[in-house]
């Protein structure tokens, strides 16, 4: 019960990093959280537009979309999904470590998140390279082997959506890696403890959101008509 530790000295507003325009640290935390979620909602709608485009074109050209799933590497996609889920766990553990003022754990878990996030991006880069080698970039150079001629045109729509959606996702991951690096540096400088860990928690929200986007991208892009192959 919180009352049991009531004798502990209350942290000052300075220790709690309360800005002058907030009455209490709790009020500030509520405002920060609400602001972050508002930003994330705009992100949901940003990606939502691309998901809507995907759904419309998939409904128009279901067979072309199913045929192109042969060119997606499901094993690598699934492995990368697992890597991203691992990074979400380490991020949640990092927030917990910050809440408990465990600096070593915080840095350890932030590095873990960075490592998983970077692994995802490196694997993604190899996937993009494979698509390039197999002539799967939409445009004049698009001529994959073993694709029925009637699908040559519409298959490019899927690959266009694939590069847009995974590309925007990767951009968000790169931003996330930058934010995590910022957190690591500040953690070494003892910036975060149980009194103040807002940046860790807010960047955590962002990181988990990017994970959620991938949770939808994986089945929708990699597993269409997967049972054919």
């Amino acid at each position: 019960m919180p009352d049991a530790i009531a004798e502990a000295p209350h942290p000052t507003d300075e220790e709690l990093h309360v800005k002058h325009h907030f009455a209490t640290a709790d009020q500030q935390m509520d405002a920060d959280t609400l602001g972050m979620w508002t930003f994330l909602i705009t992100e949901v709608l940003f990606f939502g537009g691309m998901f809507a485009a995907y759904a419309v074109y998939r409904e128009m050209y279901p067979l072309a979309f199913a045929a192109t799933s042969e060119f997606m590497n499901v094993k690598i996609g699934a492995a990368n999904t697992a890597v991203l889920i691992c990074s979400s766990l380490t991020m949640a553990m990092a927030v917990r470590a910050a809440q408990l003022s465990r600096k070593k754990d915080l840095i350890k878990y932030l590095y873990g998140t960075l490592a998983f996030g970077s692994t995802f991006l490196i694997v993604k880069a190899f996937e993009y390279h494979a698509k390039y080698v197999e002539h799967l970039i939409p445009g004049p150079t698009f001529h994959p082997d073993n694709l029925a001629p009637q699908f040559q045109h519409n298959a490019q729509i899927l690959f266009f959506l694939y590069f847009c959606m995974t590309g925007m996702h990767a951009v968000h991951m790169i931003v996330g890696v930058g934010l995590l690096t910022f957190l690591v540096i500040n953690s070494y400088r003892n910036q975060y403890n149980s009194n103040y860990y807002t940046p860790v928690e807010m960047i955590g929200l962002y990181w988990h959101f990017v994970d959620i986007v991938w949770i939808f991208l994986f089945p929708l892009l990699y597993l269409i008509g997967h049972w054919h192959w």
Binding site: D30, T33, L34, W37, T38, F51, H208, D211, I212
Partner: peptide
């Protein structure tokens, strides 16, 4: 992920309302 990792479960009523509002906007879009 949202409920536990992102801690929606433990946030204020207002933040929960915003999350639901986000889903409403997304469903309007779709």
């Amino acid at each position: 992920v949202a409920w536990i990792f992102m801690g929606v479960r433990y946030t204020s009523q207002l933040t929960k309302l915003f999350c639901v509002a986000g889903l409403v906007f997304l469903s309007i879009l779709l």
